[in-house]
């Protein structure tokens, strides 16, 4: 199963490489990874998606917790949560394609953030599935470039991941 794990860690040099190194060292896979400082400059929040059975996920969270730089973590997929990914996508848009792409963008609630005579640059946020669906809807032949941030997430309700 796919899991989204959010990690609060010390905003120190080397911290990220320890997390990434752990995954390659122990043969765990990372499907996506995103990291940035939080409102507290001394902390970074790293969110990654990975997959595996329960035993494996338990080992992953235990080993992450063992890293000295890791302060706290949560497996968001254990409870109700919100997940978002942002995608910037550059697509071919000439002639009749222009209205078609525009329509698809509207349906997916994306925004065209830049354009030329030949291309649109579109911004889209949502779950990873939604982003996948948008790419599929446009068709591979129009897609010129894709930049995705990887999944970020937060739990629903009053539960917070903080110190």
């Amino acid at each position: 199963m796919r899991h989204i794990i959010s990690v609060l860690m010390e905003n120190e040099p080397g911290a990220l490489s320890r997390v990434v190194g752990l995954f390659s060292q122990r043969n765990y896979n990372i499907d996506s990874l995103t990291v940035a400082p939080t409102e507290d400059q001394s902390l970074s929040r790293l969110t990654l998606t990975t997959s595996g059975d329960d035993r494996r996920i338990e080992q992953i969270t235990k080993h992450l917790n063992k890293l000295v730089d890791v302060v706290k973590l949560v497996d968001l997929t254990e409870g109700a949560h919100i997940e978002r990914e942002l995608m910037l996508i550059k697509v071919k848009a000439v002639g009749a394609q222009r209205t078609e792409v525009k329509r698809a963008t509207d349906i997916f609630r994306g925004q065209i953030v830049d354009l030329t005579n030949n291309v649109f640059s579109i911004q889209l946020t949502g779950t990873s599935d939604k982003l996948d669906a948008f790419i599929a809807a446009l068709g591979e032949s129009v897609v010129l470039e894709v930049a995705r941030t990887g999944v970020s997430g937060i739990s629903r309700g009053e539960k917070v991941l903080a110190l």
């Binding site: 035993r55 338990e58 080992q59 235990k62 080993h63 917790n65 063992k66």
Partner: peptide
Amino acid sequence: IDPASISKTVA
């Protein structure tokens, strides 16, 4: 003392 050692290979 290491939680990661528990149920690592044998549950």
